[in-house]
Design a protein around this nucleic acid. Sequence first.
DNA 1: CTAAAAATATGATATTTGTCATGTTTGTGT
DNA 2: ACACAAACATGACAAATATCATATTTTTAG
Lengths: 225, 225
Amino acid sequence: MSKCESCIVKEFNSLKALTREELMRVSNCKTGKIFKKGQVVFEEGETLNGVYCVKDGVCKLTKLSENGKDQVVKLVVKGGLLGKRSLVTEQKTNLSAIALSDMEMCFIPKSEIMEDLQKNPKFTMDVLKKMAHDLKESDESLVNMAQKSVKRRMAEILMYIHDNFGTDDEDYLSIVISREDYASIVGTATESAIRILSQFKKEGIISTRGKQIRIEDYSALKWME
Amino acid sequence: MSKCESCIVKEFNSLKALTREELMRVSNCKTGKIFKKGQVVFEEGETLNGVYCVKDGVCKLTKLSENGKDQVVKLVVKGGLLGKRSLVTEQKTNLSAIALSDMEMCFIPKSEIMEDLQKNPKFTMDVLKKMAHDLKESDESLVNMAQKSVKRRMAEILMYIHDNFGTDDEDYLSIVISREDYASIVGTATESAIRILSQFKKEGIISTRGKQIRIEDYSALKWME
DNA sequence: CTAAAAATATGATATTTGTCATGTTTGTGT
DNA sequence: ACACAAACATGACAAATATCATATTTTTAG
């Protein structure tokens, strides 16, 4: 397995703040893990004893609502760390992580990282920054959920995916997920999500090929009321 | 002005993790501030150069949505710190803070605290924990907004205020806010908020005296579908 | 104390969104 | 290539919520 020191993925997350020595230690205790599309990485209520570093693939973080429906809280791609909160608190995780595509990840035991979190201020500060960023994003989503129409939210998630996760060489969104997942991100019924995407298609704002979606008219999404 | 070392309020926030010497230094550079009900503490987009420690009163953290409506993201009371995020990033604040009652606060310049954040791991860890907690709460609110009815959300905010901020000696919620604020917390139209509270009143679940609200039947709120 | 302003209350109606039913398309394993 | 399951699509209707209009009550300023 490749070594953390030379792993390009870490450049996208807090691990880059570790020293070469620390990275080597982490590298020696990490374990590579493969998850197939649909597989559960961890589930709400579990005790996590480490973090996952995403090397490839996409993953959704969801929370079960009392009405029995899952709500997607965040999408995580290459470079993302899953289970950051577990480093900080003793509490069980409040989210589930489910692979949306085949995934390649490294698991780093908490015990190994905690020491660094205590001793390397640069690393701690970086974790803190990431957490602050997540909080900001979560607050923004909260406002979106509370104040915007389902159609607007759908427009925004399409732009979000486009801007943050990019497109393939034919301009299709590189993240490919089901309408059910879109519904669960936007917080609506699956039928409503389908209906809205169909409408966008009719209006020429997007086009589709199977599950793939291509944005044809970004500014229409942007200025949609 | 009283000194941080002997201030009881700090027991509720991360400042308690500071050493006696650090607290004395903080104490010397802090400034006391009074805000009247309705007054703006800071506004979305401002650059904050410190944190506010709430000694008394209630404050709402809001974010302006594109539809022109404010959404309350969090309520902060005695012991709370406003502007934590500003300690961690250079970015402008993403939230506005507005006093919901007359407030007494201490302002601590960022420059003074940053040093501690770098050098006192116990303090850093505590800030990290608080941030993780805020993130968890924000994710939970997100799911509530996305998946629950306005009525349910109203029931939950009443219980939340009851459980977290308590009641006066006549059992009225100690936080007294307008229906408009309730609407802005729950993420609905003011009329809808009024209607739902009226309904609760008719059903004997709550009673009111002016703006004050008393929960008469907690379990009705809890089990409301 | 009083007038004006703000907040609360409520009805009527429009809009958005959810639910249920049913049919079609797409993907998958053999 | 086929059969079956899953995902997608769409109509009809129900329920939730927003909006607009208009009183009434409460609070506030002078």
